[in-house]
């Protein structure tokens, strides 16, 4: 850095530390979720279609997640049922 740069430059932002922190979080999440089998998106779509046949819920209220804990894979199906009593709850 030359003497001229002192007039030109704004103080350096230490943004690399922020980048590292964000990467830690997003990569930890992606390690759990992605790298699932290729059929997962199709499985999700078909599950949602079946559920929608019996329960009137919007697509956003159905969450399908595949998580990996060590050697064990867990397929998690989370449905937020509407409050009305007449809708049958699917199991």
């Amino acid at each position: 850095m030359s003497i001229f740069d002192y007039f030109r430059r704004k103080p350096a932002k230490r943004s690399a530390a922020i980048a590292k922190e964000r990467l830690h979080i997003v990569m930890a999440h992606e390690h759990r979720v992605v790298n699932g089998p290729d059929y997962l998106p199709a499985l999700k779509r078909e599950l949602m279609e079946v559920i929608a046949k019996y329960v009137h819920v919007s697509r956003e209220d159905i969450k399908v997640n595949l998580e990996r804990h060590g050697d064990c894979e867990i397929l998690e199906l989370n449905i937020a049922l509407p409050e009305e009593k007449e809708t049958a709850a699917a199991n």
Binding site: A12, K13, R14, S15, A16, A17, A19, K20, L23, H24, M27
Partner: peptide, 12 residues
């Protein structure tokens, strides 16, 4: 401090 250091990339 504006670019990820080598050690950071390796660690990640």
């Amino acid at each position: 401090g504006e670019m990820l250091a080598l050690e950071d990339i390796q660690e990640l």
